[in-house]
Simulated scan of single mutants.
Amino acid sequence: MEKKIKAILIGLLGGLAGGLVGIGGGIIMVPLMLYYLGFSQHAANATSLAAIVPISVIGASIYGFYGNMELTLAGLFAIGGIAGAYLGSALMPHVKPKILQRMLAIVVIAASIRMGFDL
C-alpha cells in the first residue's frame, strides 16, 4: 500500500510541475521512481512516458482553454516528438542504465544553467 501512495504522490509532483512550468516526467518523476520506488532506469523512463500522456492532455487542455497554446507549433512538435520517442525508445534497451542517468543529469544541469542565466 505504501508503494501506491508514493506513486500517487510522485504523480502529483510530476503533474504539478508539468502544469506550472511544463516539466515533470523526466526531471521530477524518473528520479523519484528510481530512489523511492526502486525502479530500474529503463522501467522508470518507460513508466514516466506512459504517465505523462494523460498528464499532458489535461495540462494542455487547460492551457488551451486560457489561450496559452500555439496549436500549430504543438502539432509540429508532436510530429518530431513522435519520431524522436520512437527512436529513443528503440535505442534505450541498448544503453546502460548508468549512461541514461548521466544523460538525464547533463540535460537537467544544462537546462538549469541556461534558464538561470536567462532571467
Rank of each mutant, 00 (worst) to 15 (best):
K3G: 09
K3N: 15
K4F: 15
K4I: 15
K4S: 14
I5S: 12
I5W: 15
I5K: 15
K6C: 12
K6D: 06
A7G: 12
A7N: 12
L9Y: 14
L9P: 08
I10S: 01
G11D: 00
G11M: 05
L12E: 05
G14W: 04
G15S: 06
G15D: 04
L16C: 13
G19A: 08
G19K: 03
L20H: 14
L20G: 08
L20V: 13
V21Y: 11
V21N: 03
G22S: 08
G22D: 05
I23R: 10
I23H: 09
I23C: 09
I23L: 10
G24T: 02
G25C: 04
G25K: 03
G26Q: 01
G26P: 08
G26N: 01
G26W: 05
I27K: 09
I27T: 07
I27D: 07
I28T: 04
I28G: 01
L32V: 01
M33N: 04
L34V: 05
L34E: 00
L34C: 06
Y36V: 14
Y36P: 12
L37Y: 02
L37G: 00
G38C: 06
S40I: 01
Q41Y: 06
A43I: 15
A44Q: 00
N45T: 11
T47R: 07
T47E: 09
T47M: 13
S48L: 00
L49A: 07
A50S: 12
A50N: 12
A50C: 11
A51S: 10
I52A: 13
I52T: 13
P54G: 11
I55Y: 07
S56C: 12
V57D: 09
I58D: 09
G59E: 13
A60D: 06
A60W: 08
S61R: 11
I62Y: 09
I62A: 01
G64L: 01
G64N: 06
G64A: 10
G64T: 08
F65H: 08
N68R: 14
N68F: 14
N68L: 14
M69F: 07
M69P: 11
M69S: 08
M69E: 07
E70L: 05
